[in-house]
Design a protein around this nucleic acid. Structure first.
Lengths: 138, 138
DNA sequence: CTTGAGCCTGTAGTTACTACAGACCTTACA
DNA sequence: TGTAAGGTCTGTAGTAACTACAGGCTCAAG
């Protein structure tokens, strides 16, 4: 990579370090279309700009919030080409929020059962276990 | 399947219906070793017994509680061949419980962020959205 | 000029299933 | 006895969202 080429951007490794994203994941995002194909050097090296970094940080943050890649495509307006309206974003967010709440409710039920059964467990070095009985008989 | 063969057990479809398990999943569990290979009719049809049903219900219930297949193998004593002691089960249960609680904490953080950003959203038919800004800038 | 690091590609592995295709078997009914 | 519908058999491929290689270039530093 020449100085001229490098001037205007960073490499994939640079982008990975700058965002905390796994270097292979960047390529994966490119392949699946959520990150645009960057220009290349003569040798074929990707050249990323600040805009790519911004986009990648958006994706990573949305993933942290549990949005699916499909959701993220929608949030970025990659499904119909146009930027989504505030209403569309809100709808998607609320749908996702409902899923998150449902998941929390599931996990709380699980937590209650696990905590209760673990309490019943003696922790002795014996093969007979009330936890296994609880799993079997419910 | 002759009357004699059928007498002693049920088919894969019967087992699926009796347990609520997907019929293909039964074969998958057999392939991965958590469900023992059942005897077969002369034509190669699987013949399941009540013991298989009990085992399958245990697996399904443990899955409902969020245990991984590896955990389940451990709970059933398929890792070292011997039935696990109560202490081993307790340890596995508490490790899993800790993961469940960590996941709940994650999801609650996510829930808080989503709920807060969704509130800020006007829901108007405009392309400018505070939710997207929130994802971008945090 | 060499050495080591970084980048390139394509592909395979992960978890826990789920869904076929194409062949075979069984059952019910005429 | 014939046949049509439905069940079962096998192997394989697909799912989400990555992650990790192998084998080959390229680049930067000494």
């Amino acid at each position: 990579m020449t100085d001229h080429e490098r001037e205007s951007g960073f490499t994939r490794g640079d982008l990975a370090r700058a965002t905390g994203c796994n270097i292979e994941t960047i390529r994966y995002y490119e392949k699946t279309g959520v990150l645009p194909d960057p220009p290349r050097t003569d040798a074929g090296y990707r050249i990323y700009s600040a805009a790519h970094a911004t986009r990648l940080r958006f994706i990573l943050r949305a993933r942290e919030l549990g949005f699916s890649m499909e959701d993220i495509r929608g949030l970025m307006g990659l499904e119909d080409g146009a930027a989504p309206t505030c209403a569309e974003v809100k709808e998607r967010t609320e749908r996702h929020l409902a899923e998150v709440r449902a998941k929390i409710a599931d996990l709380r039920r699980i937590e209650a059962v696990l905590a209760a059964t673990a309490l019943r467990c003696s922790g002795a070095e014996v093969p007979d276990c009330p936890v296994l009985d609880a799993i079997s008989g419910s």
